[in-house]
Amino acid sequence: MPEPAEHYTRHSVTVKASAEAVYGLIADVEQWPHVFPPTIHAERLDRDGGTERIRLWALANDEVKTWTSRRELDRPAWTIRFRQEVTPAPAAAMSGEWILVPQSPHETKVLLDHRFRAIDDAPDGVRWLRQAVERNSVSELGRLRTAAELAEGIDAVRLSFEDSVRIRGDLGTVYEFLNDAGRWPQRLPHVTRVDLSEKAPGIQDMEMDTRTIDGTTHTTRSVRVCFPGRSIVYKQTVLPAAMAAHTGAWRLDQDGETVAATSQHTVVLDRAGVTNLLGPDATVEQAKEIVRTALGKNSRATLEHARQFAEARRG
């Protein structure tokens, strides 16, 4: 049986930033969820010199796919080659390359190449893959340009923080409370509605209405990746106006008869959104304080109710 045909695409964008700045954003794969809209979660599995293995969870045509890839990073040549080792259907193979071409000390052309084969050369599979590669490449390159062209760098608009509680109980019970978010409207006073679906084991799509400090309600949508007995990581795909990205995690660690339960958030603010929401004189630091207060309040409330749930179960 002949091998499926290989298909090739190239996408490009010109970024008003140095090759060094652009390369750094592409190379740091664990920051991709904060930069690239399709990426839900990213992990670096191992690294040896300029070669690394990564695992990604990402949206492709509005479906969550996960895969592992091997990457070869060549900073002197401004290239990063990648090849999927475990490839999700309908792809039989997927590889490609990021190529940076400095145009000047402050301008870089970015080329993103993909080569892929569809299982059994199925026409529907080829069409699905072409659409996914097109949508994700355009989205990623656009946000890469936005992030790289921030005059002060992405760290100036990024906020990370965490809150923790100690719980006298079993880690499995605490995880049950956090995983079963469909029951949060009955268990959490700040949550008024949750629509939760799990089309694949451990991959949850959650739409939630939350009551804010001023009594109004806002709707968010998130994709959650669940690691039983360890953590739940998530990324909001429908965001409040002032945010460009919001990722988070619930992390659990059993320590004797207690569980350390931690809520972690990383938010990238949208400068235009901050101005539109808070007024022309609002600063990023003011927005960070508002975000920290609002998200921290809800997270601490969730952790406190998880503590009560687990400790009551323990008796």
Score class of each variant (00 low, 15 high):
Thr237Ala: 02
Met94Pro: 00
Ala260Lys: 15
Arg166Met: 02
Arg251Val: 15
Arg83Phe: 00
Gly50Phe: 09
Glu72Ala: 14
Arg307Cys: 00
Thr108Ile: 04
Pro240Leu: 09
Lys109Ile: 00
Val191His: 04
Pro4Ala: 10
His41Trp: 13
Leu73Glu: 10
Ala151Asp: 05
Gln236Phe: 01
Thr237Phe: 01
Asp28Ile: 06
Ala42Cys: 13
Ala147Met: 15
Glu152Ala: 15
His41Gln: 12
Gln308Ile: 12
Lys65Gly: 05
Ala60His: 07
Ser164Tyr: 01
Pro185Trp: 08
Asp170Ala: 12
Asp281Met: 12
Gly229Cys: 10
Ser95Lys: 10
Asp155Phe: 02
Gln264Lys: 13
Glu285Ile: 09
Pro76Ala: 05
Arg224Trp: 11
Asp74Arg: 14
Ala272Cys: 05
Glu162Gly: 13
Val267Asp: 04
Thr275Tyr: 04
Met208Phe: 07
Gly279Thr: 06
Arg55Gly: 04
Asp195Val: 15
Lys65Cys: 09
His246Pro: 00
Leu178Glu: 01
Ile80Arg: 03
Leu277Met: 11
Arg224Lys: 09
Val35His: 10
Asp253Pro: 00
Lys199Pro: 15
Val133Trp: 01
Asn276His: 06
Arg143His: 12
Glu72Asn: 10
Thr192Asn: 03
Val101Gln: 13
Ala89Cys: 00
Val165Pro: 04
Ala294Pro: 02
Gly279Pro: 04
Ala294Arg: 02
Gly256Ala: 09
Ile290Cys: 04
Arg166Ser: 05
Glu97Ile: 10
Ser104His: 09
Tyr8Cys: 05
Phe177Met: 05
Ser299Asp: 11
Ala306Met: 01
His106Gly: 06
Ser299Lys: 00
Asp155Arg: 05
Arg271Trp: 06
Asp74Glu: 07
Arg251Met: 15
Glu97Phe: 01
Asp46Lys: 09
Ala132Asn: 02
Pro102Glu: 03
Ser160Lys: 05
Ile119Asp: 02
Gly273Asn: 10
Asp48Ser: 05
Leu252Lys: 05
Ser164Pro: 08
Thr87Asp: 09
Thr87Pro: 09
Asn136His: 07
Val284Lys: 01
Thr293Tyr: 13
Arg55Met: 10
Arg81Cys: 03
His114Asp: 07
Met1Gln: 08
Ala132His: 02
Gly273Arg: 08
Leu129Val: 01
Met1Val: 10
Ala245Glu: 08
Leu277Gln: 12
Pro4Leu: 07
Thr39Ile: 15
Val174Ile: 11
Val35Ala: 08
Val101Trp: 00
Arg193Asn: 13
Val110Trp: 03
His190Lys: 09
Val267Leu: 11
Ser263Gly: 11
Ile232Thr: 15
Trp78Glu: 01
Phe227Gly: 02
Thr293Phe: 14
Ala77Asp: 11
Asn298Arg: 11
Leu45Trp: 03
Asp253Val: 06
